[in-house]
Design a binder for these strands. Structure first.
Lengths: 222, 222
DNA sequence: GCCAAATTCGAACGCCCGTAAGACTTCCCT
DNA sequence: AGGGAAGTCTTACGGGCGTTCGAATTTGGC
């Protein structure tokens, strides 16, 4: 990779944990580099250099490079799923147990698209998650398959909104919807930035969410 | 990777070219390994071992490992695009210049899903293409961006079928549709195989195509 | 049958990688 | 003030990687 000096990486760490600052520096630098260049194209030396810490820090604090990737993935996945579950729960409350299609899909798609906003704190995290999902280690793929409980909440809700569809059909359509989302790996750079002349605006993200929701909702109504 | 002996890789080469058999052996073995394990996880030594040829063959016949990847990608992409263009052309002939939505989308989705059929000769090629699209080198990403001419044919046709939509809207929906398709990276193994108890049948693929078409068509009608 | 070109082969080079070992420093608790 | 744990640092090891080189071998035209 390019040895651009991401080094002066600020002194404000996550503040969410009072652990060693070094660990957070590594975590943040690694997430950023993994998101931008991919897991295999980023070396431990790249990470520690960007974080401004010692080479041995990764293995001391995380055990191994793979374990570091996995830890970032676990934390960010949990955060994203928490936001999704919260929105779904609120939709349930608002609609006495059976929200309309669009609200269910909004609970699924809004959190990641919020993260995608130009100055959002988790923007790079979403890029990381999408990349990790496709390039990740076997361990990550295992989590993705095992983490059915989270998706089940959504397929159940969708099934309640469209009880005439078979569970299998609902599962496929959910799969399609997630495909729409995950394919924004490069679109985040290409389309989103190109369409608005290099500067992604908040409005663009909102418009994109709207487009995705309309498309997916229609797909589910078919 | 696992050093499983893919070695005895048959004597029937592509027959499409009368060039050195070694070159084809390398081509086929590399495509298979890249598709199954990803570009970065397959070494030149893995490829030549699986192909049963000498280590230096890759560099002699293709120049470099990257060039090999690129050559496979170019050939398979051309083949796939040719099939798509042919179907779109036939749809145009059948409908005096402006086919209905579903026929346009069928021209886009049918070829790759045909390749996905259990005993199709190009099954592994499609897995390769989907993988290369997301993990590929910068050179491949450049081709994907440049290869607008192929997608333009489809966005133009779609625009003619839905003239009330803005070109931007059409382009996004096309992007969504391709996302549905490309996300079948692991689905090919997980869903498709799981649902039919380990044995993907031709019928499953046809059913999947139908589901995708219905979903995408509804999305475009929204 | 011969020679030159094309191909195959074995071996090695140089590089970068993830990880570990051991010395050194910092910090906190009593 | 001292001692032990926690963290940081330097250094290097072992290994796999893509690539290259020169010799050996095969091929094809005359």
């Amino acid at each position: 990779m390019s040895p651009t000096t991401d080094a002066a990486a600020s002194h404000e760490v996550d503040a969410s944990e009072s652990e060693a600052a070094t660990k957070n520096l590594v975590f943040v630098a690694a997430e950023r580099l993994f998101a931008l260049h991919g897991f295999q194209n980023v070396s431990v030396r790249d990470i520690t250099a960007a974080a401004g810490v010692n080479l041995a820090s990764v293995n001391y604090h995380f055990g191994s490079k793979d374990a570091l990737l996995f830890e970032i993935f676990k934390r960010r996945t949990a955060e994203l799923n928490r936001e999704r579950a919260k929105m779904l729960h609120e939709a349930n409350d608002r609609n006495v147990g059976s929200p309309p299609l669009r609200e269910i899909l909004a609970a699924l798609l809004t959190p990641p698209l919020r993260w995608l906003a130009p100055d959002h704190e988790r923007r790079i995290s979403l890029q990381f998650l999408i990349r990790a999902r496709s390039e990740g280690t076997d361990e990550i793929r295992q989590v993705l398959k095992t983490d059915v409980s989270h998706l089940r909440r959504f397929s159940d809700a969708l099934l309640r909104a469209r009880p005439d569809l078979s569970p299998e059909e609902v599962y496929w359509r959910l799969h399609f919807t997630l495909g729409m989302l995950h394919n924004n790996r490069f679109a985040e750079f290409d389309r989103l930035n190109v369409l608005s002349e290099g500067q992604t605006s908040e409005a663009d993200v909102v418009a994109l969410l709207d487009r995705m929701l309309s498309f997916a909702e229609a797909g589910f109504r078919a």
